[in-house]
Computed example of a mutant assay.
Amino acid sequence: MSVEPGWYVDPAEPETRRWWDGEGWIGAPIPVDVTPPDGPPPAEPEPTAPTPTSGATPHTGAADSPGHAPTSGAPGQPGHGPGQPGRPGQPHQPGQWPGQPHQPEQWSGPPGPGAAWPGQPGQAGQPGQQGPPPGWPYPQWPGRPPVPRPHGLPLASYGARLVARLIDFGVVFLLNVLVNGWFVWRYFEAIEPYLRETMRRALNGDTSTEGLPQIDDQAGGLQVVILLIATALWFAYEVPSMAARGQTFGKRLARVRALPVETDQPLGFGRAFRRWSTLGLPTLLWYCCGLGLLFQFVDAVSPLFDQPLRQALHDKRAQTVVVQLPRARPDAPTTPRDRADPPGESP
């Protein structure tokens, strides 16, 4: 999944942020606790040639004597001195003084394990190609890659998310008892004679199906009404609260919150609906031999197998991530989150 351009925490230097242009890091890093500017960093100005001081002979770029190399890195002449046009901001190589004639770079082979090619994301201030030359394998993180911290917050554990979801299911179940209870009672009245006779024959070892009571014709319609009401109650409970705060009642108790991947902002109605519909709409398919329940189970366990952001299928559709909120300190005043603070997730 490509990451949109923006200011992100540099995985190589977690204390700094840098601008990610969609393919690599550009610009100079800034401290992570400083609010970045809007948009990409300004282009670095090309350094100008040093101005001669009074009483000094200005350098003309020509050699003072035959065989004497220029020392100021004039345009079109070799040299690695600071401020040489055409090589903005590049420091001279170790063991090479400013003004020393340029020595052709020697190919020393591919970088070793854990090293990165020039221009690879995470290498500050190194222009070049994005990735290794053709034919070379792309280098990987040395050892285990760092755990992402979207917007500076740790990812919520699966246990915390499961507890929050079970609490929400309990609330939705109570709402169904109050609103949907009469329809459920009528449905069981319609199928009760059939169930009772089936259970009696099963206990007596009778496997015949002849003479079984017919199920009331209203049972099918009642089942559809029950599922529609249950889905509507779930929608009314979850979507508005997730759109406004990224939290339901269960998530507040578990101290977890859903945030957009790219910014620390409320989800909004559209994103909250897309997130809920992936998990909630399959409720309407429960009457199809439990097919909807199977879809919901796969969605519920999907964070266990997703790396690195532990996103469920409904998170991937809405491009959200669930984070763990810190415990509020009673002795420290709480401050609202800076809504203008750009994302802090490492791509």
Rank of each mutant, 00 (worst) to 15 (best):
M1S: 11
M1W: 04
V9F: 05
A12N: 11
W19V: 02
V34F: 02
E44C: 01
E44G: 08
T57N: 06
H59I: 10
P66G: 05
A69W: 10
G81C: 11
P85L: 01
G95D: 00
G99I: 05
S108V: 12
P110T: 08
P118I: 01
Q120C: 01
G122F: 06
G131K: 00
P134T: 07
Y138F: 08
Q140V: 13
P146V: 12
P154S: 12
A156Q: 07
A160C: 03
V163C: 05
D168Q: 08
V172K: 05
L174V: 15
W185S: 13
E189Q: 11
L195A: 13
T198G: 04
R200E: 11
A202G: 06
L203G: 09
E210V: 14
L212Y: 10
G221L: 07
L227W: 11
T231L: 09
P240K: 03
S241I: 13
K251P: 00
K251D: 00
R252M: 15
R257Q: 15
A258Q: 04
P266N: 10
G270H: 06
R275N: 01
T278E: 01
Y287Q: 14
C288K: 02
F295G: 06
Q296G: 05
F297M: 13
V301Q: 07
S302F: 03
P303W: 05
D306Y: 05
A318L: 02
Q319D: 13
V321W: 00
R327K: 04
R329M: 06
D331N: 13
T335C: 02
G344V: 04
P347H: 12
